[in-house]
Design a protein around this nucleic acid. Structure first.
Lengths: 208, 208, 208, 208
DNA sequence: AATGAATGAGTATTCATTCAT
DNA sequence: AATGAATGAATACTCATTCAT
């Protein structure tokens, strides 16, 4: 799926990228603090370090900022994940490592993940599919890892089970961010990784 | 934790309850359609069947409506769950049933769950704890079920594992709602229940 | 052609009429001073004697004010004219009187006529036809007077001549307003009426 | 009355003239389409074929563009008229020809005339007199023609009548443009010229 | 002489909330 | 207890103008 283009009045592509990076950085902080709706475009401009007029040289509407923010977060997360998933070996150990790495990425970007999580619904009908697609792509990364284990005979799963598990892993990572108010009181990140991995691999009833 | 009181100008408690029920019913529909921020108080009043002036006889601010809505949704969900959890027997079978029932409740109220999920962050600092507490209470229900199994020797888990699992169950229910755009394309509700339960109980590697 | 409805949020028709009258009165003054585009909605509200919020209870957009103003001006002008044209006798004398009266109405409302003249183009494509139609109706009033003279044998004109003349009379009235910067330096109103009437009836070459 | 100077930063007079011609050409088209207020300086620059920065090298403010446009339109109209009025013979026939020619010029430039008509009021207090003066000059052309007829004894008119008639002729030309929505449905240009000339010369009551 | 990125004052419109009736 | 007219702070977005390159 091709990226959704956000129109800019300024021609210089380099500059557009630079300004948008400033904008995204400022906006994430604000969205974390007060949410998308309660953040004003003037605040975004100020946080980005330029004037309201300049802001609108690089976007068409406030909602574009949200899209840019969401897109950038996925970009970072999946970039980080892809690095880790390079060494695809099709062993259970490497799958566990993939999960642990994903959970650690989420932990590092928990503010950003939370924003995306809570504000994605404010995207226009227009932009939503692009963002949902990113979610699917991320689940697909784990699908790949799991399939490699199948090929190696390390796991035995149906198609549906594969889908189910990869989505579940994705959500178990995200919940570390969106239920942080409780989970991070109960567990350290390492504990959380340990416990979730164990549960996932052995299940409730296979503790022996 | 005691319920947060929402102040009303009107004294007649019966009437207050009646009007608020109308209000909540109208508001949920609107919040589902357009989200909290994009719904106006006028629309809420109209959907509730009375005037904007009357609306403010029963609440202090727009945010009160959101609180009332969230509170009511939790009320319904936990009410429904408690019914099912009456017959606490401490068997694995009854735990599975509890999970299945919880997933079914979520399915029935998926719109409402989604609203709560996406809008809870718009609650004031003031109201948020009451809502988060509800989440904890819900996890606690599963904690209880699990502990009964421990007592009966049907399960062998640490304290941390118990917490972990109950939170995970809660989230796996919610994800049926907030990832519906993909999950409900892939699975029927029964399949989803079946697959999640199997995964939870046996784990990935215990398929024999 | 039915009047174009301007939507109001307020139900009480009496009140709507009253507030709109205030609004129109204030707006005309402002439009005369600075034109439609340079007048702000806040200024209109202030001139009308209420708040910006209240203004928008009675209109949907700034352009509605312009439409209301134009409509009201035509209303007044044609009302005044119709009174005078009641005594249709089909004599040249009564036609002259009709013209004189029309010119006098324009003179009394010259500010308003000027506004309509200069700002009508700012009406939306939506509203324009209603306003142009008013112009046609006004020309039609003179057409009627002229036709009465034909019936009485006081005049002998083709269809096209009738159309031509009635439009010309309308414009000769309006020009008293929109060329006032020169005409009202050169002539008194009475002179203007006298001269235009003479020119119209006798022509250039029939001065004997 | 001396022309109002529009300041340019660029010194080369040739270039100034060239750039302004581009600018005027682009602006007229835009003003016709959307009016002065709804046209942005960026659009004008683009239509002229250069950048917004360059635009401001040749004018001081947006309103300068309007002045330049109005000035240029008058320039063209009066240039065209003067050509025709060279052969001043002081006969009724030549007066009729002058009128016909004027009407034809208006017809050819009806878009431009309309713009001037509707937007002149947006000129600053500063520029308005220069434009109104142009109107007076144009009336003066007909005054001259009429006076020649007086001198030849072809007409017998008072000073006031002369003024009156020349203004009326000017307006009757303009109305072909600003009432085109109705007049050009009713008449061809030739018919319009024929009918207006006849009316002007013979009057209503001298049809025999 | 030409460019176009940056600026920020300005503006239409919305909407939560109040309060007189 | 109910109404709905009135309020005005708040806000997204525009656009004429400037100025460094």
């Amino acid at each position: 799926m091709k990226k959704r283009e956000v129109q800019a009045s300024v021609k210089d592509e380099r500059l557009v990228q630079k300004r948008r990076d400033q904008m995204i950085k400022g906006a994430v902080t604000l969205f974390i603090q007060k949410g998308f709706h309660r953040t004003t475009t003037r605040e975004i401009a100020k946080a980005a370090g330029f004037s309201i007029g300049t802001l609108y040289e690089y976007i068409r509407s406030k909602e574009d900022v949200l899209y840019l923010v969401c897109d950038s977060i996925y970009e970072h997360v999946s970039e980080r994940m892809e690095q880790d998933l390079q060494k695809k070996q099709g062993t259970l150990e490497s799958l566990k490592l993939g999960i642990a790495n994903y959970f650690r990425v989420i932990d590092e970007m928990q503010d950003e993940v939370l924003v995306m999580y809570q504000e994605a619904k404010s995207l226009t009908k227009d932009a939503l599919p692009y963002v949902l697609n990113k979610e699917i792509e991320m689940a697909a990364m784990f699908e790949k890892l799991i399939r490699l284990c199948l090929e190696n005979g390390e796991l035995d799963l149906t198609e549906k089970q594969i889908k189910m598990i990869s989505h579940t892993i994705i959500v178990e990572g995200q919940m570390w961010s969106f239920r942080r108010w409780e989970l991070q009181k109960l567990f350290s990140l390492d504990e959380y990784i340990e416990l979730q991995t164990e549960l996932l691999f052995k299940g409730l009833t296979n503790k022996a």
